[in-house]
Every structure is written in structure tokens, then in C-alpha cells.
């Protein structure tokens, strides 16, 4: 469970996240929507202590993330835009192993986790392939596997579909469906609700760093104007 309490984050004088209190349950699929500069990316980077609050607190399973960054980062996995810039190794398997290696796990455990993570994104048995030679969709899935190998309860994806072609979108979405079915909590940050809305249990809308919308998808769709996001039904 991820909880923020009166979270504030400032860049200079401007508050990018302004007094946000949210609770995200285990297994919940949440879409965080908002326009450019609404603060959605800044907000989620607090979930695993990539940023430090100016005031307020963030906890994962009751533990303060600033004091327990390793706990936060292993339980809340984060996948960023631009998968190409997230890889640390040249081959798929070596890259996916990076997270578990940092956790100091035994080699057999690491090998098993890498195999499971690759299977979870439909890349089983492709550990020896060179990342540079994969398609965009495959790279996006390997980036997800690299985070899954740390066995997180929640997976936060920042604009996971931006820049992907139709086929790659479909393949990433199919993986997300499977993860959600397997009980992983999903937090998808997006400015574009197409394909996301029918999968979400809940939609949180941000504008100017504040939560202006937090509801089930049905009612939320009628109020998308508040967050300056296009209605995907149009």
C-alpha cells in the first residue's frame, strides 16, 4: 500500500505537487492523468523515494520511503519513458539481472527471477539477445522485466505507451493485463487515456499539482475537462 500525506514538492517557488494525500491499495489499477506540468510525474517519483518531499510524508506499507528507500524501490517498481536510456547492459538477461544483483541475492535466485520476469513479459528464453537489436515494443517489455525481477507489489509506469507504434502498444498492454490479473498493483501515468481507461479501477486527475479528480472510471470520464485531458470516447 502506498500512502501520501499532505505531500508538497517545489521546484524553486512553484509547487509541482501541492498538498496531495492519496492511498493506493495493493492490487489496484490506477490511472494518474493530467496535462503537461500537472505534477503527475513528480508525484509518482515520490512513491519510491526518487525525490524527497519538501513537506508531508510518503509511506509504503507504513514505512517512510525516505528512511527506507530500498524497501520502497523493491516494493514499488518504476518504469520510465524512453526504455533505451534505462538499460545498463548490452544483453537482455544481463540487464534484467541488474536489480536482483544489487539486492545481493544468490546467483540461483537471480537466475530464477530473471527467467520468471522474462516469461512474464513474453520474452522467455531470449536472455542472450542484444538489446540494441530488439524492436521498440520488445525494449519496453524488457524494461518492465528489469523492474519485475525485483518482485514489486506495485508497478508504476510513466507514459508507457508514448512513442510506441500500434503493435508495440498492444503487446505492452497485453503484458499489463496479465500483471494486473496476477495481482500486481498498477499505476499508469499518462496524458492520454486511450486504451488505459477500460483497464483502470480508478482515475486520479491532477491539475497544477493538486488532485482535482479521484473516482471510478465511469463518473471520472465526465469530468476530464477539469484536468485538461481529452475524453478518450471522442
Amino acid at each position: 500500500m502506498i500512502e501520501t500525506d499532505s505531500l508538497v514538492h517545489r521546484y524553486g517557488d512553484a509547487a509541482a505537487v501541492d498538498d496531495v494525500s492519496l492511498t493506493l491499495e495493493d492490487g489496484e489499477a490506477v490511472a494518474i492523468v493530467g496535462g503537461n506540468g500537472s505534477g503527475k510525474t513528480t508525484l509518482v517519483r515520490h512513491f519510491n523515494a526518487l525525490l524527497e518531499p519538501d513537506s508531508g510524508t510518503v509511506t509504503v506499507d507504513g514505512r517512510d520511503v525516505t528512511e527506507h528507500p530500498v524497501y520502497a524501490r523493491t516494493h514499488v517498481g518504476m518504469v520510465f519513458q524512453h526504455p533505451r536510456d534505462q538499460f545498463v547492459a548490452g544483453t537482455v538477461g544481463a540487464d534484467v539481472a541488474f536489480g536482483p544483483e544489487n539486492l545481493g541475492l544468490d546467483r540461483e535466485v537471480i537466475d530464477r527471477r530473471v527467467a520468471e520476469a522474462l516469461a512474464a513479459v513474453d520474452m522467455a528464453g531470449r536472455g542472450d539477445e542484444r538489446i540494441d537489436r530488439l524492436s521498440g515494443g520488445e525494449q519496453a517489455r524488457v524494461a518492465i522485466a528489469g523492474v519485475l525481477a525485483m518482485d514489486p507489489d506495485h508497478l508504476v509506469l510513466d507514459e508507457p505507451l508514448t512513442g510506441l507504434d500500434r503493435g508495440a502498444r498492444e503487446s505492452v498492454l497485453a503484458q499489463l493485463d496479465e500483471l494486473a490479473a496476477g495481482g500486481t498493483g498498477l499505476v499508469v501515468v499518462t496524458h492520454d487515456l486511450r486504451d488505459v481507461v477500460e483497464r483502470a479501477d480508478r482515475i486520479v486527475g491532477l491539475a497544477d499539482g493538486r488532485v482535482v479528480l479521484d473516482d471510478d472510471p465511469g463518473p471520472a470520464l465526465d469530468r476530464l475537462d477539469d484536468v485538461g485531458v481529452r475524453d478518450p470516447r471522442c
Binding site: 534505462q86 545498463v88 536489480g99 523492474v147 525485483m150
Partner: peptide
Amino acid sequence: RLTLALRARCFA
């Protein structure tokens, strides 16, 4: 971007 990814993956 690499910095963020390294941190998120518990670079130790």
C-alpha cells in the same frame, strides 16, 4: 534518465 533508472533499480 539513466541516473533515475539506476536509482530505481537499487544501484548498490
